[in-house]
Amino acid sequence: MSVLVLAQHDNRTLDKATLHTVAAAARLPGPIHVLVAGHDCGAVAEAAAALEGVAEVLRVEHPAYADPLAEDLAALLVSMAADYDHLLAPATTFGKNVMPRVAALLDVAQVSDVVEILGPDTFKRYIYAGNALATVRSRDARRVLTVRTTAFPPAGSGAGRAEIATVAAVEPTGLSTFLGREVAKRERPELTSARIVVSGGRGLGSGENFKLLEELADVLGAAVGASRAAVDAGFVPNDYQVGQTGKIVAPELYVAVGISGAIQHLAGMKDSKVIVAINKDEEAPIFQIADYGIVGDLFKIVPELTAELRRARG
């Protein structure tokens, strides 16, 4: 029996989340197959075939998979499921959208956001906004998992030489129609894979003031994130949100600016290697988990920090 990984991609490049998912799949018994469903997605199939640990790539072409809908991808996965003990996808909005539908159609439970694989049927995952770590055992014959990408190092790429097989598409259901996607173009690294993240909260006071953080991010080569309060207030778009119900990040360095440190925010960043907090309230809970804290006005400290880093760089 084998493991099937659903690849996340945009028809041109394989998303890094898939590399982490393949690494998780390597902890399970059996060869790893990667499903690349897309339109004109040959380059993605090649990239998947070069991943370390991948035994076979299944490429499925259909115009409907250019911007795939959960209904269609789920039908495709279900049609292939009989050959697999485990079906995996990253716990991104892409994977979270598709996999529970697959699990229900297979009449099995899904284990969401897996952070550790203890055996073929036993997994660890966080509950209660990261305040408890549960070990769960699946009693089902087939296991559907989504994988927390920050919990598994990425599979090496370039070493593998997997076969690429072509598989027939399943006729689209026609239940839904993709209308469009607004993707902000950003020069900075992507939030979930950045080595350094600088995040702002309500303390920033406005979207305009996020410029201060962007300047800091630029000297650090960092991605910019935010708390829910900053997103709700319209300072920055929704895809900046770090936390229990936003993105999970675990960079080498996380700088929290004007963020109080609510448990819902901590759930998304407390696995960062080093945490820095800048907050004018010395009682702010963020200081309880920060490695380095500066108490003071961010409008003074952030520009100073940016200047100091520039100076240090020379």
Binding site: V108, A109, V111, T122, Y126, I127, G130, N131, A132, L133, A134, T135, V136, R137, S138, R139, D140, L253, K270, V274, I275, V276, E282, F287, Q288, I289, A290, D291, Y292, G293, I294, V295, I301, E304, L305, E308, L309, A312
Partner: peptide
């Protein structure tokens, strides 16, 4: 239920860090 909860643990705790007095000190420590 299809999933059996075998164990629920306290997650690993982070050690409390230090407060620094200036950005110079922060950059030096980082």
């Amino acid at each position: 239920p299809r999933l059996e909860y075998l164990r629920v643990e306290e997650p690993p705790k982070r050690k409390a860090g230090v407060k620094v007095g200036s950005v110079q000190e922060l950059v030096a420590k980082l």
